[in-house]
Design a protein around this nucleic acid. Structure first.
Lengths: 238, 238
DNA sequence: ACGCCGGCTGATTGAAGAATCAACCAGTCG
DNA sequence: CGACTGGTTGATTCTTCAATCAGCCGGCGT
């Protein structure tokens, strides 16, 4: 709003103020949860008046919805890119995990809100947030459907469930950091967790009875650990 | 105790009424969520007067806390039994998954409450529910610590994270049923999901490059599939 | 200069619902 | 049989917020 205010704002549904409020909402939601915070808290955090929140958002629910959609659509877009891209299954699985962890690295608070508020829908609320999660799971189940047809997967796996399990593992892995079970300041730990999630999902936890070949395929493969980070460093609007 | 009411009740902190209210609370929480329901709803469901809820529980929060602790402690007890029991790692992992799914079979509503209300805590509330989850994860991480020392696990696995991933997979697998992504009336589907969760966790999703031996070890191993169910059929106080 | 316009303010209101409490009643005991 | 106890009731009170709205600036056009 520094220069062209009214003009730009009219055409652009994203005024500086609005973004400030959205940012504040993410922080407060992350700290106290959706139900645990009052609009007053958000306004205070944003350094604006109570009523201004209602100038930009119809009500508290729309505010959460916006926070949610913004963050989630960015995530889903990037997951879709991975799923629809080229390469072997294992690379894609690593890719999906990367996307999730990169999102966390960029904006842990936002991820915390997405993860923590995801399940609970205040009954009346429009789009059930579970639906969003389900969509993401369905989306990446494509991956497993195709992989299964190609014979890359064991025969007795259900693609949808596989997809759910991957997201479950990612979610809980992230939760470990979100809740402080693991130290999220430790970049090393994040990298290791990322690798372990994908590897466990692909190969299991057990020490492989068949040594060499299979096992060797995924471990030394991480010299360019930054490669994937770069890919998912795409702009994240929050 | 069925006859002698007042006498027994004095000594027994579990009067019939109290249990009725608890049961009603579980059902209403499962249906509308903690925040989405009024104490009036719980009272109506239980067929008692509004005020009686406050006779047995200090406030709404204590009610949720009790619902939570009751269900959770039962689950943790059974998980502990599995973890501290005898047998190879793979059997125990299957055992933990069994416990979770059996709990769901016995009382899906209660599990729904535990899963859905687990993450977010109303700020002021005493024991953070996340703590409970973290405890369970820590508990079963023992499993992986010991297994790792015994060389059963790949060297680069963090036991705590492994434990988290297992629970993440279980949770999301269960969530698939809770949210209706998968049909929970289908007993077959439940059995298959159970098997797939444990198998994926132990061996990964990939078609095993090394056939026979390793793969054969876990699949035919489930002739006595009721064994574990029986074990976890222990009294569940709700 | 001046007043108009639109972003902005924050005290006020009204609803929702948690928690209270005084009265009620069904047994029990003396 | 009549005092007494303690579980039970639900209208009433009290608190908390979401949402409103009457007006306040400060820039901009005239």
């Amino acid at each position: 709003m520094a220069q062209s205010k009214s003009a730009a704002d009219n055409g652009n549904r994203e005024s500086e103020r609005r973004r400030t409020i959205l940012r504040a909402a993410i922080d407060v939601f992350a700290r106290k949860g959706y139900h645990g915070c009052r609009i007053a808290d958000v306004a205070k955090e944003a350094g604006v008046a109570y009523g201004l929140v209602y100038h930009y958002f119809k009500n508290k629910d729309e505010l959460l919805e916006t926070v949610f959609d913004t963050g989630w659509s960015g995530f889903v877009t990037r997951v879709r890119a991975v799923v629809e891209g080229e390469g072997p299954l294992s690379a894609k699985v690593h890719g999906v995990v990367d996307v999730a962890f990169e999102a966390y690295r960029v904006d842990p608070r936002a991820v915390k809100v997405l993860i923590l508020e995801i399940a609970r829908s205040p009954a009346g609320s429009r789009i059930n947030r579970q639906t969003a999660f389900v969509d993401a799971i369905r989306l990446s189940s494509e991956l497993f459907i195709r992989a299964k047809e190609a014979g890359e997967l064991r025969a007795d796996t259900d693609p949808l469930l596989s997809s759910a399990l991957l997201f479950g593992a990612i979610e809980m892995g992230l939760t470990a950091f979100v809740t402080g079970l693991a130290d999220s300041r430790d970049a090393q730990a994040l990298e290791r967790a990322k690798a372990q999630i994908a590897d466990t999902f692909l190969h299991g936890v057990l020490a492989d009875a068949s040594p060499g070949a299979e096992t060797a395929a995924w471990k030394p493969e991480k010299p360019s650990s930054e490669k994937s980070s770069t890919k998912s460093k795409a702009p994240k609007r929050t």
